[in-house]
């Protein structure tokens, strides 16, 4: 039995005119680090709010830890941890007061579960007399995570925990999640960053309220099925236009400092002809190399060819 199970969940807003979550079903295994990956407005937060009993689904049913999200909402509230995307702790209380407050709310103490939050809390403990509103972004996230963990939840919901956090803090944050997973806590995390997807055990790619694909990051990448070539030249914009106009090219997207391109027929001849074609258009410092597909490539492909 899954730690979290969704069965044909649909959620609409504004009298059914806006469909936020469209017939979504998936299952998360106990102790899994599961990622919901999708752009802003894909429906990630709505799914989280339904699973944490803040929102009622229109149709469908879901369970968390075996409890129904509608009928047994009280049971769920005492056993899950939720960290909303927006910092929502008391800004006028200090770090320690916030933590103590949430511990007391769950009828426990900081001391009782200190082991669980130690790794995280130790980094913000020097600032425990500081008001939460005066912390930096990364420290706020650590405090919010500590508060969400203080009652030793069985399932942890993290809604875009790394949005607006610097690269170093993001990496630290994911290391922490890995350690929580080792403690046996099921973690559901959502993120708009594709590069974070590979850090999850399994991911669901979501767009416009629909699940595009659910699998391990490796399997999703392997399922890409085509060779991607990374191209670069001095004038990237002209290169992009030329590639898209070329009869050999199937798709071409900007990806960091390279253009990720797939070919209609991938063989030595077409590759050479493409390069000749580009050189004839006076592209300088032209470079082409095969590269491995990333989650973002898969995401774009799934968007272009809907399942």
């Amino acid at each position: 039995m899954g730690a979290v199970r969704l069965n044909h969940i649909t959620k609409t807003y504004n009298n059914k005119s806006v469909v936020a979550v469209d017939d979504v079903s998936f299952e998360v295994q106990p102790g899994e680090l599961f990622g919901l990956i999708g752009p802003d407005g894909a429906g990630k937060t709505s799914i989280f709010r339904m699973l944490t009993t803040l929102l009622l689904p229109d149709t469908g049913e879901a369970t968390v830890d075996g409890y129904d999200i509608v009928k047994d909402y009280k049971m769920i509230r005492s056993r899950v941890g939720y960290m909303p995307g927006k910092f929502s702790l008391y800004q006028d209380l200090t770090v320690e007061e916030n933590l103590r407050f949430f511990a007391t709310v769950f009828d426990t103490t900081i001391e009782a579960n200190y082991e669980l939050i130690k790794d995280i809390y130790i980094q913000i403990e020097p600032f425990k007399e500081r008001r939460a509103g005066k912390l930096s972004g990364g420290m706020k996230q650590k405090l919010a995570l500590s508060c969400a963990l203080i009652h030793k939840p069985t399932v942890l919901f993290l809604d875009e925990p790394t949005t607006g956090v610097d690269a170093v803090s993001r990496k630290e944050f994911w290391d922490m999640l890995k350690r929580l997973k080792m403690q046996g806590i099921t973690v559901l995390v959502s993120t708009p960053y594709m590069d974070e997807a590979t850090l999850c055990d399994r991911i669901a790619l979501i767009q416009s309220g629909k699940i595009l694909s659910i699998d391990t990051p490796r399997a999703i990448v392997n399922a890409y099925g085509e060779q991607i070539y990374a191209l670069r030249a001095s004038n990237m914009y002209r290169l992009l236009n030329d590639l898209r106009a070329s009869e050999y090219v199937k798709s071409c997207y900007a990806f960091g400092e390279y253009l990720h391109t797939t070919l209609k027929q991938d063989n030595e001849t077409t590759r050479n002809e493409l390069m000749m074609q580009l050189r004839s258009r006076q592209h300088e410092q032209l470079e082409m190399k095969p590269t491995e597909a990333g989650i973002e490539d898969c995401f774009i492909k799934l968007l272009v060819q809907p399942v």
Partner: peptide, 13 residues
């Protein structure tokens, strides 16, 4: 407005 009520609502309060 600040969103703390959300955090309170997912607790047993």
């Amino acid at each position: 407005e600040i969103g703390t009520i959300e955090q309170i609502n997912v607790t047993p309060i």
